[in-house]
């Protein structure tokens, strides 16, 4: 199975970024500033202020990814799937919502927070903003967030009618829990069946058996993928 990485976007410890304009390889660690609307959109966006931290972080990564690929603007809905792996998902939102339940014995339960106690809701936010009609799902696995999500994305690209898959990870701090191995933040890549003829691409992603390769080199981690993408000299087409 093969796909081409046509866009990369993220929220790292240094803030929102994307592959074609970043000077430095992004770093994810135990520090994260949850993105604000102005970090992402020049225009007002009434919905953004209602989002929980997990959704803001995930939506920002997907937005930057589509912007990087030149696909942020759209007229007709597009058969692009979204897929994210996460360790703790929206657990902090769960805790925040549960606090509103406890506060008034249920009378003050927040309908807005409750809507974001499903971790896939930020994928819905991305879908409605950018007209993405492909499958959208969150993956959680034993061993935490890892590159398997890119393997699952290549499967989705091969087996479904989607023209592309936006796949990556999203993690935000949860009170009382240690930072996951990926660090906090998000990273999303747009994988499509062909290299983008206008914007160019970062390289070829291949799944052979259970092994994932980027430009025919075995991949070990998201950081490794970023290092490899940043060595592609013609990415700023």
């Amino acid at each position: 199975m093969t796909g081409w990485i046509n866009g990369i976007g993220w929220v790292s410890t240094m803030g929102c970024g994307r592959g074609r304009t970043a000077g430095l390889v992004p770093i994810w660690n135990d520090r994260l500033a949850i993105p604000a609307r102005k970090d992402l959109f020049a225009h007002t966006d009434l919905r953004f202020g209602r989002l929980d931290g997990f959704s803001r972080t995930g939506l920002a990564g997907i937005t930057m990814c589509l912007r990087d690929a030149g696909r942020e603007e759209w007229q007709d809905k597009r058969a692009i799937a979204t897929m994210a792996v996460t360790t703790s998902g929206c657990l902090q939102t769960d805790l925040d919502y549960q606090a509103t339940v406890i506060e008034g014995d249920g009378k003050l339960a927040s309908p807005n927070l409750f809507a974001y106690t499903l971790p896939n809701c930020f994928l819905g936010e991305a879908a409605l903003r950018f007209g993405l009609t492909g499958n959208s799902l969150i993956l959680q696995q034993n061993g935490g967030a890892d590159l398997d999500v890119l393997s699952r994305a290549l499967e989705e690209l091969t087996w479904s009618g989607s023209i592309g898959v936006i796949a990556g990870f999203c993690e935000v701090p949860v009170a009382g829990l240690a930072c996951p191995p990926t660090g906090y933040g998000s990273l999303f890549v747009l994988i499509e069946g062909i290299p983008d003829p206008q914007s160019g691409c970062y390289g070829k992603l291949t799944l052979t058996g259970n092994k994932l390769f980027f430009n025919d080199t075995p991949l070990a981690s998201f950081t490794h993928l970023m290092d490899a993408c940043f060595t592609v000299t013609d990415r700023r087409v």
Partner: peptide, 24 residues
């Protein structure tokens, strides 16, 4: 965390690690 529940299910059905939770 969800992965703790995934481990429980793997163990109860005597399956090796590698289970995946799909949240849609």
């Amino acid at each position: 965390l969800p992965e703790a529940f995934i481990r429980q299910v793997e163990q109860r059905f005597h399956l090796p690690p590698g289970g995946l939770n799909i949240n849609a």
